[in-house]
Amino acid sequence: MADTRPDVQRETLPLFPLQTVLLPGTSLPLHVFEPRYRQLTADLLTGAVPDRTFGVVALRSPLLREVDELNHVHTIGCAARLEEAKPLPDGRYDLTTTGLRRFVLHDIDTRSAPYLIGTVSRLDDLPLAGESDDDEAAEDAASRLGDLARAAHRRYCDAAWPEEGRRTPPSDTDPATLSYLLAADCRLPLTDRQALLEQRAPLPRLREVCRLLNREAGFRSLLRAVPTSLPDMDGGTGAGAAVSLN
């Protein structure tokens, strides 16, 4: 999947290893407490790190105490933009961030800064038209699949939090983005979210989101359980942040 050709443009990004997966176009609140990631937050705010952008990569094991090798994390991650930072009296921060784009992580630098620095290259989706010999047929298939995925999303929301209603993406949302936005509302295991992040073909990704939403809606209905807020997940195994999921 990763494009490792030498002519592929690479850049460096500060890294946040976490016990979750950030999807493009979705939000991720973070609570930062470890000193090195307080420093990263300060560098993002002052412009020492340009564009308030850093990379989120998922840990391969929740048992890791420190990330210092490439194989400690999944190598497909998501760049994030810091939208807002609320400083707390003891030096911690509450952050609001948004997923921007996917990247391939090629290398990790543990020495150049207090926090991790990754060498990355951008990972774009495959063209929608490339999934069919007929552009019109591809668009028609995307429209039908989008309707099915939205219906699955409604079923999931009705089963998971019937009292709260649902948040529906705008009708003109493109299929590539729609898959991420619908998945963001669902309490999916890390492995499922990572697989969605790694899928470069928009229609198969939307089809998989539809399947996952239907699966989770079935679980919720069967158990007659309304999900409560998940406890903060301590990303301190090299991350220094707790994650609040939607």
Rank of each mutant, 00 (worst) to 15 (best):
Q9V: 13
T173H: 04
V73H: 02
T41P: 00
T75A: 11
A176G: 15
P35W: 03
R207M: 12
R155F: 10
S179D: 05
T98G: 02
P189V: 06
C157A: 15
A58Y: 01
L126F: 07
F219C: 10
A217T: 06
L63I: 02
G118C: 07
L190N: 05
A129N: 10
P175D: 01
E69F: 08
R101W: 05
P231W: 04
P62T: 05
A137Q: 15
S244N: 10
L30P: 00
L13K: 10
P62Y: 01
N214Q: 14
S61G: 08
F103A: 12
A48C: 02
L188I: 09
A225I: 12
A152E: 10
R10L: 08
Y37P: 01
T177H: 10
P14F: 02
D109G: 09
T53W: 00
L40R: 01
L59Y: 07
H31N: 14
I117P: 01
S121A: 15
T53G: 03
Q194C: 06
E69V: 11
H31G: 08
A176P: 04
R167H: 12
A241W: 04
S221W: 08
P202S: 07
L128F: 07
D7Q: 13
A42E: 15
G165V: 08
S61Y: 08
L40D: 01
A152Y: 06
T97I: 07
T96Q: 15
L181I: 09
P17N: 09
E69H: 15
T75C: 11
K86L: 15
